[in-house]
Amino acid sequence: MSRSTNVDLPRRGADWDRGWRAFAFFVLPLASRVLRLHIRDEQNLPQVGAFVVAANHYTTVDPIAVGLAVARMGRAPHFLLKASLLRIPVFGRILRGIGMIPVERAARGGGDPLGQAAELFARGGGVVVYPEGTLTRDPELWPMRGKTGAVRAALGAGIPLVPVAHWGAQKVLPPYGGKLKIVPRQVVEIVVGEPLDLSPWAGMPVTGRVADEVTTLLMNRIAELQGELRGETPPVERWDPAQHGQSEFGRP
């Protein structure tokens, strides 16, 4: 199923609290004037209950595209975001008010993002996670090796883990900067995959081996979905920054 999205405001799901309704009223119409979304297979996103959406990440516009898409599909998107964003005066307070969850970089430590996500899941909400943790280092913008947070959250809570891929946001803003292009309005293609079958690991301790194994499956599936959007075949192996002498944070 595919849908072209042009309306200003999405339908509201049961998990849209007062803060999200206010935020959506002011922000989503602006976002929809920058991006035109073509959403495929939106029926794969659960309409009730908790979920984890895991998406590819190749430009700083991604959260706008994916957040708008999740909202268009009737759910309130809550992101795991860099903690530094939530420390920005006023802006950070708004992000916290709509349920964004801070993630500290390893060097800083502290915080409990998965614990906060579990509280959201208990209320029937969902989170959007970028398993790569930063913009992909793959020079062709394919998904790279993922971190295990999305898998640990979904397995730990026993909830759907939904792979999502998108393509086209780089036309609005290239990775790591460049000229912002909002006229004409750019099209971003988004495909929602079926939730991963996590039944083989149900009830098992979420060990490092299990988390790595499922994360590999997740990233491969996201790459396959992005390949469908691009009309290309993704690389067999996910890009590993460590093997190419690249930093895990900041610019490569």
Rank of each mutant, 00 (worst) to 15 (best):
A122D: 01
E119A: 03
V27F: 11
F249C: 00
L173E: 04
Q47F: 04
P10C: 07
M204S: 00
I64K: 11
V90I: 10
V128N: 01
P184D: 06
I190T: 12
R209Y: 09
P163D: 07
A22L: 12
A14P: 10
V129A: 03
V53I: 15
L225Y: 05
L37K: 15
V151M: 10
A211H: 14
E232W: 02
P63R: 13
D212E: 13
R145C: 07
Q243W: 00
A202V: 04
V210Y: 10
G124A: 04
R72N: 10
K171C: 07
D112N: 11
T216G: 12
R12M: 10
K147R: 14
V103I: 11
I101H: 09
G49T: 12
D62M: 08
L135R: 13
A107I: 00
E232R: 14
L198S: 01
A71K: 05
L86F: 00
L198K: 10
P113V: 01
D41M: 06
P205S: 05
W20K: 13
Y58K: 14
R72F: 06
A165P: 12
E42Y: 02
G178R: 08
G156A: 02
G227Q: 11
A154S: 12
E224L: 07
R93N: 13
P139V: 00
L120M: 09
K179T: 01
Q170F: 08
N6R: 15
A242W: 01
T215V: 12
R251H: 01
D240A: 09
P163Y: 11
P10F: 07
A150E: 03
A150G: 03
R105W: 03
W201L: 03
G231Y: 14
Q43T: 05
K147W: 02
R105K: 08
A65R: 15
V214M: 01
V162P: 15
H78E: 14
G110F: 03
A153H: 00
R108G: 09
L95Y: 04
L95T: 11
A122P: 08
L173P: 09
V53L: 09
D212C: 00
G49H: 09
T134S: 13
M144G: 12
I88D: 02
R11P: 03
R3V: 15
L161R: 08
G126N: 02
G193R: 04
P160Y: 05
P175N: 09
A150L: 01
R11Y: 02
E140L: 03
G125M: 03
F23P: 06
A50I: 00
D41Q: 13
R3D: 12
R185I: 00
S32Q: 13
M1I: 08
G124Y: 02
